[in-house]
């Protein structure tokens, strides 16, 4: 078992009303799964993904990641888990505009203990693998959206995470670019990486092995 969410609730207080963003979420994810999260806009998909990715906290329930109870871990410990096992891919890419493609991909390694030659080798592999060696010295703004997302994925993969979380990774791309990204995900998944993606498209969801549907912060049966 990679991770397990039990009766997760998340809410915000507005005035004296409590607005639930997530209600009674129960999910089990095994290593090697490819899961799609779907649901209408505002249903809580991003919120859920952020909770899984430990970018956001929750108010009630249990979250075990590799048998570790996340809710009772110290921040430092949580960051270590996160650094080691999770990679994030965003709809808006979120690359650093001031850094080149090479530097962007290299960045996660800087927060871990890698020698500079190891880093060089790892980044080189990534560039090769995504066929963007020629673009390594360009800045993100000089790339197309699809290329930017490739860089985003390369950056997420560089530290060989067990789990990739992708929030509408193809949302800003045309269908051909989107397809390429999804193929890439499928390939990664076959290599053993667990993937959880948020998507609006049935076609993209079909790449996954299972779909979780959300409505108003609640899971609905498929």
């Amino acid at each position: 078992m990679l991770l397990e969410l039990n009766n997760i609730f998340k809410w915000v207080n507005s005035g004296n009303r409590r607005i639930f963003l997530l209600k009674d979420i129960n999910i089990q994810v095994e290593e090697g799964e490819f899961i799609s999260i779907m649901g209408p806009s505002g249903s809580g998909k991003t919120t859920l993904l952020n909770v899984i990715g430990m970018l956001d906290n929750f108010d009630e329930g249990e979250y075990n990641f590799l048998e570790e109870p996340i809710q009772s871990l110290k921040e430092k410990h949580r960051i270590n888990l996160y650094k080691k096992y999770i990679g994030f891919v965003f709809q808006a890419y979120h690359l650093m505009d001031e850094l080149t493609v090479y530097e962007n991909i290299e960045m996660p390694l800087l927060f871990k203990k890698y020698s500079s030659s190891e880093r060089k080798a790892l980044v080189g592999d990534m560039l090769d693998r995504f066929n963007i060696v020629g673009k390594k010295d360009l800045f993100p703004t000089q790339l197309s959206g699809g290329q930017q997302q490739l860089v985003g994925i390369a950056r997420a993969l560089i530290s060989s995470p067990k789990l990739i979380l992708a929030d509408e990774p193809t949302g800003n791309l045309n269908s051909k670019q989107g397809e390429e990204i999804m193929e890439l995900f499928k390939q990664l998944n076959e290599e053993g990486v667990t993937i959880i993606q948020v998507t609006h498209s049935e076609k993209n969801a079909a790449y996954g092995s299972r779909t979780i549907n959300l409505l108003d912060g609640r899971m609905i049966k498929d």
Binding site: L55, E98, P108, F111, K112
Partner: peptide
């Protein structure tokens, strides 16, 4: 954005 990305990537 820079802070956000760095945190997401694993900066403590």
């Amino acid at each position: 954005k820079e802070v956000g990305i760095k945190k997401v990537i694993g900066a403590s």
